[in-house]
Design a protein around this nucleic acid. Structure first.
Lengths: 152, 152
DNA sequence: CTTAAATGTAACAAAGACAGTTACAACAAA
DNA sequence: TTTGTTGTAACTGTCTTTGTTACATTTAAG
């Protein structure tokens, strides 16, 4: 069980929009080519990101743009937007422990605080990384690629 | 997408073994009654925990016991044992970004370090919680239950 | 040595998430 | 009015998870 690729695809999308916004109209087909998935998969994702207020999408004429400053969009915002976990509960607790057993009756309450702390640690880290960071990292890798091409 | 209930069930199992080890033989049927799932689900889990060296299971005669000191078994040990994520990669990266696109070519490398840091934050927290903690929490809740029953 | 009770495991089913795909109505700009 | 695009429904295949039945294997005890 892993966190859906929607999450990494969404970050990929932000990087693409920012990188190509001046040279291309950013359509779902354009993004689909870079990500290498079906355009409908992209459109479904764009709908989620739009609902979360992170991007704007032009109906009809087409084209997507980022709705907020890059350093105001955290990985956590994206993670929430694309609904990686149900009910915002990272851990799936087994549903019906026996109420006849003292352990069964109490295990859920007993564990909750610990599990929340683990989840919070992950989310805290996600909140501290922004789309700006991701795009800068990507540009740095692209630059390295170019400079090594020049050397050759 | 959530972390499999195998994880919380495994912790439940440890709590049961420790709580009832002096009074009952801990069979898969016994555990299945407390967790309220099919005994085969328990046996599959016990096999994983045994493989990881966390418990011992007596073939034939039956009965399970914990193989290490309670404070030497961390939530992370259990998480690894029950294989909650594939390849130890919490994030599912989309498989084939376009190599024709500079962003597509570099996004994976550019993101990896950030994603690893998020995953590490979660795992770090998991390593700091032990079965001993969980069992103590559970016993505290059981004790509260008893004392409020007495009051009544 | 037989029996009873467990475990280990295969096999299959049901349900749900994920991702791929086709199709098309709705929309907006040229 | 045409063209290109988005939004979305519908259906599919695959995979994971969990539930379940069945049974061979193993061990201890009588």
């Amino acid at each position: 069980m892993q966190i859906s690729s929607r999450f990494t695809i969404a970050i990929h999308i932000f990087a693409c929009i920012d990188t190509f916004k001046n040279d291309y109209k950013i359509t779902s087909d354009f993004l689909a080519s870079s990500v290498n998935v079906n355009p409908v998969v992209i459109r479904r994702l764009l709908t989620q990101l739009k609902t979360a207020g992170l991007i704007t999408v032009a109906r009809g004429s087409g084209g997507t743009s980022i709705a907020k400053p890059l350093d105001k969009i955290s990985f956590y915002d994206i993670y929430l937007a694309v609904e990686c976990v149900e009910d915002n509960q990272l851990f799936h607790f087994h549903d019906n422990p026996s109420t006849l057993c003292p352990v069964g009756r109490n295990i859920h309450n007993a564990l909750d605080e610990r599990l929340e702390r683990i989840q919070a640690a992950m989310e805290h880290e996600m909140k501290n990384i922004t789309v700006k960071d991701a795009i800068e990292d990507t540009k740095r890798f692209i630059a390295m690629e170019n400079s090594s091409a020049i050397k050759k």
